[in-house]
């Protein structure tokens, strides 16, 4: 903990540099084995694949930096996606995508606040609380709201998945574009970065993860900060849910849940310390890129897809292990 600010910065950059280097090295290796990898179509599709995990990861990142852990966000995402789709179809089938996203985000905020009540007011550990709320939310969704896949989504959600730009012609003549979802992801990443860096609440998120008691002594309102964190997680999960069903062109209430540990793994790959106080948005985004790259490119280089889990496991261990060893060395243990 006794690391000066400049040392700390250097270290943080070092980790991001390592992740970036791994991404570049992997890309070169994959590309040299299969040149299809460099095709603009593949790159666009990889970027699109980062969107859902990325939105979830931004929320997870906030929680981890604050020194806690949340595993209910995928259940929140599925809940928001399904309930919003049903509501919109029932009441305002012609609603625009922005309205739909806001409704989903709002439901997400409310669910996030439930987590915040337990974690902040009752001072219970996030892992336990979100284990409880996560299974309640999913159980409620599948018991009381529905298990049927919605095949006909609101038009604006389908239209959203078709919005692309930066159009390029592929070698085979097909014109491909980058999904707008990627822009949404990056825009929120920048927004979270700005909030963390320039607002008092944002600084408090880091402070809370570094030293809770000191944060309270300095005069931060910890309850308010935690409501901000879990509300934001809920909002981002809502967005992720709607975006997911828009990409899939259907609303499946069974989707998303089960991916939470990979999302956390991605954030941690990006250098966020699970004990709180350390980590950067840029790192988290890189972590998502790396995990998506591995998940989607094994097949391209001829590694059967059943190797995926083992490879992901090894990469998590190598990455977290190298960071842990580095920290030990710098602390002279």
């Amino acid at each position: 903990m006794k690391i000066s600010a400049s040392d700390n910065m250097l270290k943080r950059f070092r980790h991001e540099f390592i992740i970036l280097a791994i991404i570049v090295a992997l890309s070169i290796i994959i590309g040299s084995i299969n040149s299809q990898f460099y095709s603009i179509g593949n790159i666009y599709s990889l970027l699109k694949s980062t969107v859902i995990m990325g939105l979830f990861a931004l929320g997870s990142f906030l929680v981890l930096v604050s020194g806690d852990i949340d595993i209910s966000f995928t259940a929140i995402g599925a809940f928001c996606m399904y309930v919003t789709s049903k509501l919109v179809l029932l009441i305002i089938p012609g609603a625009g995508i922005v309205v739909i996203m806001l409704v989903a985000g709002l439901i997400g905020i409310l669910l996030g606040f439930i987590n915040a009540v337990f974690i902040s007011l009752l001072k219970m550990p996030g892992l336990i609380v979100t284990l409880g709320t996560g299974s309640m939310i999913r159980g409620f969704l599948l018991t009381f709201i529905g298990v049927r896949i919605i095949n006909k989504l609101p038009d604006s959600m389908i239209a959203f998945s078709k919005i692309t730009f930066l159009h390029k012609a592929q070698a085979n003549g097909h014109i491909v574009g980058l999904s707008i979802g990627f822009v949404v992801f990056i825009a929120f990443a920048i927004l979270i970065y700005l909030i963390l860096k320039y607002t008092v609440t944002g600084r408090a998120v880091y402070a809370l993860g570094g030293d809770r008691v000191a944060t309270a002594r300095v005069g931060f309102n910890i309850t308010k900060v935690q409501f901000f964190i879990y509300g934001t997680v809920g909002f981002l999960s809502g967005l992720a849910g709607v975006t997911h069903s828009s990409f899939m062109r259907n609303g499946n209430p069974f989707d998303l849940v089960g991916t939470e540990l990979s999302v956390i793994a991605a954030v941690v790959l990006g250098g966020t310390s699970i004990t709180g106080g350390k980590g950067s948005v840029f790192g988290a985004v890189l972590g998502v890129f790396l995990l998506v790259l591995i998940n989607n490119s094994l097949i391209m280089v001829g590694i059967p897809s059943y190797w995926q889990r083992a490879v992901v496991g090894i990469i998590i261990l190598l990455s977290t292990g190298s960071v842990a060893l580095q920290e030990r060395r710098s602390q002279g243990v």
């Binding site: 941690v268 995926q308 889990r309 490879v311 496991g313 261990l317 977290t320 292990g321 842990a324």
Partner: peptide, 17 residues
Amino acid sequence: GITPILATLGTMQLFTG
């Protein structure tokens, strides 16, 4: 020196993998 959650998250993937 990896935190238990992360270490076992990684080995969970590895063993299942």
